[in-house]
């Protein structure tokens, strides 16, 4: 305030010094606690559209479903199509349509958990919106994040979209059954993953043909046992 006439001439500076995504991070923490209390292992799946996320999930549910409860949250901008595919496997599923939104956030997952109420001890897959940029910034409360990349995409994708790969505990290279028909250098792709995230594990699978899927299932088992992946608390 001005000392001469008392007018409000000078603005007051208020310090905030808080993370922009503090609210999302707090909600994610609440989700994480809620999931842990029920012994639910949540995995956040991120990829470009068309990498085979839903096909990998259908196969995973068929293979693991008989031994443990599996539940799915499907994120897409529009349509319940993916949820319908998952529902046909007999697995409980909730579809979130983000409309104009390009990613899921912690609040959306919290609301989906209210509706889904995953069984105690279940494996929860959260299929994020097909997009390798925006989902990387938003912690949902998952135990770990997985990026799925298919061999019909470029082997240089980890360098082009480093943020998603940098926060992943596992990179799944999918559609390896198509390797004879496409120019995709798996070794080069692995090098690029290491360049942006030396800690990430990498598995090569074909979700349609079933190649090497036990490596994916092993990673999930290890994650539950606490010997793979990492928490995302920031």
């Amino acid at each position: 305030m001005c000392g001469t006439c008392g007018c409000d001439d000078k603005p007051e500076v208020i310090t905030l010094e808080r993370k922009v995504l503090a609210h999302n991070d707090e909600t994610a923490r609440a989700n994480r606690e809620r999931l842990a209390a029920r012994g639910v292992l949540a995995v956040n799946l991120m990829s470009s559209p068309g990498s085979g996320k839903t096909t990998l999930l259908e196969r995973t549910i068929r293979d693991l479903g008989p031994d443990r409860p599996v539940a799915v949250v499907e994120g897409d901008q529009q349509t319940p199509l993916d949820a319908e595919r998952i529902r046909r496997t007999g697995c409980p599923v909730v579809q979130i349509n983000t409309g104009a939104g390009c990613h899921l956030d912690a609040e959306m997952l919290g609301a989906a958990l209210d509706r889904l109420a995953p069984a105690a001890g279940s494996l929860l897959f959260v299929e994020n919106v097909g997009n390798l940029i925006c989902p990387a910034l938003f912690d949902l409360g998952e135990r770990d994040r997985v990026v799925i990349l298919s061999v019909t995409e470029g082997a240089d994708k980890p360098l082009k979209y480093p943020h998603a790969f940098a926060v992943a505990g596992l990179v799944v290279i999918n559609k390896v059954d198509l390797l004879p028909y496409v120019e995709f250098d798996v070794a080069e792709c692995r090098r690029h993953v290491s360049a942006v995230n030396p800690r990430a594990a990498v598995v090569e699978v074909s979700a349609t043909r079933g190649d090497n899927l036990p490596a994916w299932y092993d990673w999930l088992h290890q994650l539950r046992a606490g010997s793979a992946g990492r928490d995302h608390t920031s």
């Binding site: 603005p11 007051e12 500076v13 208020i14 010094e17 993370k19 360049a195 030396p198």
Partner: peptide, 19 residues
Amino acid sequence: ADVTVTSGRELQIVSMEVD
């Protein structure tokens, strides 16, 4: 490749000026 990021991940609201 054993590099730990020490700066560059900041995304913070620092301050604001109000009347």
